[in-house]
């Protein structure tokens, strides 16, 4: 008897490939929404908009201070009890919602730090030639903040892809959910889970490669 049932693992690959798109879609949609939300939160924090600033701090504190799994259960099982119209929130929606809110809290802070980190004298130089605040943001501050924030944001995206696996606890059949079902049928737990682990690993490595290329391009202006 061989140590590993390689044929079983190879057979699993096409099955898992069918569920890969759902995993990637949840991460992509979650990331897009989280980016938008995080930018909004970051701007509120940078400009210290009265009222909203305190609310933002509370939001960030809560979503960074509690486990993602707890947040997912809260949305999936808890919210429908509180808000009657949500009786049929599905697992995919709840996952995307949880990922968005959870990761936007982290991302808001790194975007804020990146904006604040842009050299203040450049801001003054832009104002001194008669730029408006909007032009200053668009042309000078945000491009430089992006360079600083992108590596961290990519790390959050990678984390988010791995975190989609929690969706299986809400009954979603994505990569992890599908593997779980297959393993339960075959009892080949090690083979099944090492296969799905390699799936995640390859995706993450691919993204890390993209990240390195992106950073090289973004850093072009700063090489001495």
């Amino acid at each position: 008897m061989p140590l590993l049932d390689v044929d079983y693992m190879l057979g699993l690959v096409p099955i898992l490939l069918r569920y890969l798109p759902l995993t990637l879609q949840m991460a992509a949609v979650g990331m897009a929404l989280a980016l938008v939300l995080a930018c909004g939160l970051a701007v509120i924090r940078v400009l210290r908009i009265p009222g909203l600033n305190a609310a933002t701090l509370l939001f960030i504190s809560f979503f960074r201070g509690t486990p993602l799994l707890v947040q997912l259960f809260l949305f999936y099982y808890g919210l429908p009890q509180l808000l009657a119209f949500l009786t049929q929130i599905n697992g995919i929606t709840a996952t995307i919602m949880g990922l968005t809110l959870h990761f936007s809290a982290y991302m808001a802070e790194s975007i804020r730090a990146a904006i604040v980190g842009v050299d203040r004298s450049q801001t003054e130089a832009a104002l001194s030639i008669g730029m408006t605040n909007g032009q200053l943001m668009r042309r000078i501050v945000l491009p430089q903040a992006t360079r600083v924030a992108v590596p961290t944001l990519m790390n959050y995206f990678i984390d988010m892809i791995k975190a989609t696996s929690l969706a299986f606890t809400l009954g979603v059949t994505e990569l992890m959910g599908a593997t779980q079902k297959e393993a339960a049928g075959s009892f080949l737990y090690f083979e099944a889970f090492i296969t799905v682990a390699i799936f995640y690993w390859l995706i993450v490595e691919l993204l890390a490669w993209v990240q390195r290329r992106l950073e090289t391009r973004l850093n072009e202006a700063y090489r001495r």
Binding site: Q122, E124, A125, L127, S128, I129, G130, I140
Partner: peptide
């Protein structure tokens, strides 16, 4: 804005746009 457009400033630390 008018005052800023009619004056130009040269800074001690250059303050060039790094990007």
């Amino acid at each position: 804005l008018t005052a800023r457009r009619r004056t130009a400033f040269v800074f001690q630390n250059y303050a060039l746009f790094a990007n």
